[in-house]
Each structure stands twice: as structure tokens, then as C-alpha cells.
Write a protein that binds this DNA or RNA. Structure first.
Lengths: 328, 328
DNA sequence: TACAAATATACAAACGATTGCACGATTAAG
DNA sequence: CTTAATCGTGCAATCGTTTGTATATTTGTA
């Protein structure tokens, strides 16, 4: 590959002049700048960013660490973040943790070795706390989004989980459901905890008893959602607020198996508003988290060097699975 | 950040010794190696991969260039590729082109400046040919997958598009559909051309007339699929083979609008087997492209420095939307 | 005891770009 | 005509690692 030294030799000048010419430094004459730029073009020169970054002690890549990429939510966060970062001249390197803490630690160390300019991350379910993160990252700026550890320093971008699940639960209550359970996540994670707390508060505020036996923790994939829903049915539930869409999908599988009509006999609200939610029959009411906006905010928090917490409101997309009032 | 020089000073040795010790070079004594490793651990040292790569003239990152990330197909290709590349010590930097040639050229040049070890790519619809690719990439190894330009050198990994669409069309014929149209893509792309050719061949081989007026090119998103389907209905079609799932989804929207029953009155087969295909009502028959496998093969082709073409068979997932025989 | 071989480490030059400082040439000011 | 300011360029160090070669120490052998 062509280097500035090659160009310098071809023109009989020194690499420093070439470097300055290409950087548009006013200390090199207009005439020479043109000469250098033409030669660079002609010889097919592309600046070696790796060398440039090393010398300048900078980096133009930011790491994005997520559980997995083939989730509507995460891939849209990435898109949002990328659109902002790309405009600011940054590249993104994307790492999946597959929900495992060990993998998370590994990719964080890899990013640290790459001396990335920053890391945007949503932690794995398998990480009970954030104690492994700072040791792995060193002093690289960290922005957490969606799933955040409150105890860690740095910027955070979160959905209004409490308010969202509160609204979702109130919506179920308004639709006349009386015994509403919840498919919860792991309580070590703030996101899932808040979604649970919003659900509970909504029950309390509306005079419905809170019953621990119809809280099903650790139910956020299709299978566990299915199994938990069966148990919810046994326990006499007539509705579920689910902390995820995949578990809501599993719940719908269970309802279909048992021949239970939704929304008629059973109400269901999911979270994330995955693309498939609108396509199911009945279509699934779900809380939209504005992933694109979340990605943008995370990117901005990094670019601006902030370390505050941004809250993104959630949007209840009312569809058939919960809408008994208009469905009959 | 801690450097080998810091460690060297702390121990009163030279950076070269530290470097060798950490690399497990036999020229440094066992005793010293342990000493260095402990110091590195204690001081929180992480090797600067950027500097290391520069010096060694290598890179441990490969670029993946795709139209967009929030497609089941592409995110699964990424997962597959990443699993192979990660095991081989590579990181991946992912770039979206949003189907635009200009963006494609831009990201390729960025990857070239980063001196990535290789690029796995599926080109944008907006790229009429591959003439911009080599100039942007220089001599960086290129592996094309799914959407490939035959005229470019280097390895290619493609789905068995011709055979797949042939099988899909035959399946529709077997189910008694008589006037089968197709939602096609842009014909400048081999993928879409092959899908079209397989469709046509299946008609010819089974004594059905080929009718150009029910070929709807450039219909691969939901809206265009919807519009094309309306025109197909006008033209008296009773089935469509769609080159994509999103356009098939749009077609299903159109059928629902018009109150046309599928599969009873209208057969529909999509391509890509997106997650939502199995969740719709009626569920959508679709050609699975084994994206994960395609990603793995692309990664392997890169790792092994191949430049041949690998064909991944496609799998017809028969569901309700086309299955009149068993549906009634 | 002397010399060769082996061992462990240091020295210094790279990789490709950037940048503070110095230098010669030109121009301006006194 | 001298002195200073300005301009364009070159020199050389640097970013953090790696690695070929040199050097000092130890060990073994005759």
C-alpha cells in the first residue's frame, strides 16, 4: 500500500511536507499542496488511519456491546447510534455477548486493547453486576443504555421503564382484567426491576391486590414465557404484562394451545414492540422503547462527554391482544 | 494507559524483554517471564493492539458491509461470520450502506484506510455494478455473499437462488395454482435475476405459459409488494412467488384488503424466511437461505484465502400461505 | 586456564503518520 | 544596507510494539 513516504520520494520532498499538505496545514504552499494532492490521487493513496490514530493518541472507533444483534430492538439502537457517530467521523465495532458475562468481559477487554474512543453497552443478563466492567475497560468512556448498572459511573440512557409498565398495567386494568400477572426478567437488572415495580404500583394504585405468586421472574424468552403463562393460567390469571415481546409470544403460544381467546378471555401486553408484534393474530399490544432514539442519545452522550442519565419515554402501542373494550 | 515501557521501567529491564516475555518467546527466562506477567497483571496492562498491528503489518479486524442490519437475514449472517472470525481472533466492524452506492463507496474507503484484513460484503441495491468496489478497497481481500457481482475477483458465497425459486414455483404449481406471477428485485443483481430465472424455468417445465406482464420488478419492500400484488390481482393471478419476505408481507396486506383468502384463493411464497413469516396468519411459506451458514462460509472463505464460489442450498419452509392441498 | 557455545538481555531500527523546532530564503522595515 | 519578520521546508522525535543483531554473562569442554 502507498505511504506518504512513497509520495514524498516521488516528489522529492519529505514525508512531513506531504503529511502537512494532505492535512491542509497552512504552512505548506498552495502550489505544493495541489502537487501533493494530485500525486496522492494518482498513486491511489489512502491514509493509514491506524498509524495516524496511534501517533495522535486518538481513535475513531467506538465499540457497541450488546447481548445479540438479531433483535429488532438492538439492531435499531445500533442504526441510531451509527447514524450519529458516522456523521461525527466514527466507525463502530459491534460485539455480541450472547447474554454471557464471560463473553462480555472478553469483548470489553478486546475493545480496551483496541483503545477504542468509547463504548456503548447494554449488559448481558448473565452479568449479575457491573464489577467486571471497569477493570476490563480501564479508563475508556462508557455509555450504558437500556440495561444499565446504576452503580457504574458515566452516562446512561434508559427507557422510562417504570412509567411504561405502569401505563401498560393500567391499560389492562381499564380493559377490565382483574387478575394480572407479570412475566419478569432478572431482578438484578434495573430495567426489569423497574418494569416490575411499575406493574406493582399500578395494581396498588388501582385497588388490585399484589400477589407474588403470579410474578414469574426469569421469563423473557419464548419458551420460558410459554411455561410461565401456563402456570399463570393455572393460577387463575386473566392477563399478563410481559417485560419482553418474545416471552409474550410464548404466552400467546400457550393461550392458543389451551384454546383461550385473547383479548376476550385473556389480556396480554409485551415490551419492545418488535416488528412481529403487529403481524401476529391477535396483534400484540407492546411498549415501544424508541430504540433508534435511544441509540442516538447514547451516541450523543458519548460525543458530548456527558455523564448524566437520559430517560426516553416509552410508548404503548395498543393492538388487539389487550384491547377488550373495542374488540368485544 | 500502561505500556510495556512502563512495565520495563518498573522492573528495570527493556521494553523488548517485556514484549518477548508477554509473547512467550523462549529467549526470555522462565523466571523473568513470570515476573513480567505478574507486573503486567498488577499494573493492569492491556496490549495496544493498534500499535502491535501496525508494527507487524497485520490487522485483526475484518469489515462486514451490508445494506442494513435490522434484517433477520443480515443479522444472522453477521452472527455466523462473527462466530467463526471471533474464534480465529478477529474482530468485526460492521457498516451499513442503506442500499446506496455512495455510502457503500464511502464505507469501503473507510475500511481501506483502517487497513482491515478483509471485507465480507453484500452489495447495495443502489450499486448497478461492482466497478466502484476494487478502486475503493485496493488490494484488501474481498468475499462477497448473497448479492454478488460475478465480474469481481475473489470468493463468493451465494444461495442456490435458481434452484430455490424453481422449487418454490413448482410447489405453487403442485398446489394447483394456475396463473403465478412474481415479485422480483432489480435485474442488475445476480440474486434477483436467478430467482426470476428459476421461477420462469419452473413455469416452462410444467407447461404453464410465461407472461411478462405478471413479472413485477423492483418490488422488494412492503409498499411495492403491496402495490404489485394489487396489480397482480387485476391481472388475474392466483399466486405470487416473491423474491423477498417483506414484499410478500405487503402482498398479504393487499390480499387482506381485497378480502381474498390465502391459501384458498391465492397462493404466496416468500424468500428469506424472516422470523415474522411463521407468526403471520396465514403463516407465510418462505425459502430459508441459511443465513448463519452463509456467514460462516464467507468467514471461512476469508480465513482460508479462497477465491472460489460456494453455493448454499435453500430450504422451502412450507406453511399455510401456499399449502392449499392440506388446508382445503 | 582458555576458548567455544549457549543463554539472557539490551540496543536500535522499524511500522506510517504527526508535529515541535530549526533552518534557509525571501520580503519588509528602519 | 542591516536587521527582523515571515514563509516554506526539512530534521528528528514520537506514538507502543516488535524483532534482527549485538553484547554480556554463564556454562561446558579440552
Amino acid at each position: 500500500m502507498v505511504t506518504i513516504t512513497d509520495i514524498a520520494e516521488a516528489l522529492g520532498v519529505t514525508p512531513s511536507t506531504v503529511s502537512r499538505a494532505l492535512a491542509g496545514n497552512p504552512r505548506v504552499s498552495e502550489e505544493r499542496r495541489r502537487e501533493v494532492q494530485q500525486a496522492a490521487e494518482r498513486m491511489g493513496y489512502e491514509r493509514n488511519i491506524v498509524a495516524s490514530n496511534l501517533r495522535r493518541g486518538k481513535s475513531d472507533v467506538v465499540g457497541i456491546v450488546i447481548p445479540r444483534i438479531n433483535r429488532e430492538f438492538f439492531s435499531n439502537v445500533i442504526s441510531g447510534a451509527e447514524s450519529i457517530l458516522g456523521r461525527a467521523g466514527y466507525r463502530t465495532i459491534i460485539c455480541q455477548t450472547h447474554e454471557e458475562m464471560e463473553t462480555e468481559r472478553r469483548v470489553l477487554r478486546a475493545l480496551s486493547r483496541h483503545r477504542v474512543a468509547g463504548v456503548l453497552m447494554s449488559h448481558a443478563i448473565g452479568s449479575p453486576d457491573g464489577s467486571h466492567i471497569i477493570p476490563a475497560l480501564g479508563d475508556i468512556p462508557l455509555v450504558q443504555f437500556d440495561r444499565v448498572f446504576d452503580e457504574l459511573p458515566g452516562a446512561k440512557v434508559v427507557g422510562a421503564n417504570f412509567e411504561g409498565s405502569y401505563e401498560a398495567t393500567v391499560h389492562l386494568i381499564r380493559n377490565g382484567y382483574k387478575r394480572i400477572g407479570t412475566l419478569a426478567g432478572v431482578m438484578t437488572s434495573g430495567v426489569f426491576k423497574d418494569r416490575f415495580l411499575g406493574y406493582r404500583k399500578a395494581l396498588e394504585d388501582n385497588g388490585l391486590p399484589f400477589d407474588e405468586s403470579i410474578v414469574f421472574p426469569d421469563s423473557i424468552v419464548r419458551e420460558t414465557g410459554h411455561d410461565a403463562c401456563l402456570r399463570a393460567i393455572e393460577a387463575g390469571c386473566d392477563a399478563l404484562y410481559s417485560s419482553g415481546d418474545f416471552s409474550a409470544l410464548g404466552a400467546m403460544d400457550a393461550l392458543r394451545e389451551r384454546g383461550i381467546d385473547s383479548p376476550g378471555q385473556f389480556g396480554l401486553v409485551g415490551t419492545a414492540n418488535e416488528f412481529f408484534a403487529s403481524l401476529m393474530t391477535p396483534s400484540l399490544t407492546s411498549l415501544d422503547q424508541h430504540p433508534n432514539e435511544m441509540g442516538k442519545q447514547a451516541a450523543l452522550a458519548f460525543l458530548e462527554g456527558r455523564s448524566d442519565t437520559t430517560v426516553i419515554p416509552m410508548d404503548l402501542k395498543i393492538r388487539q391482544s389487550s384491547n377488550r373494550l373495542y374488540h368485544g
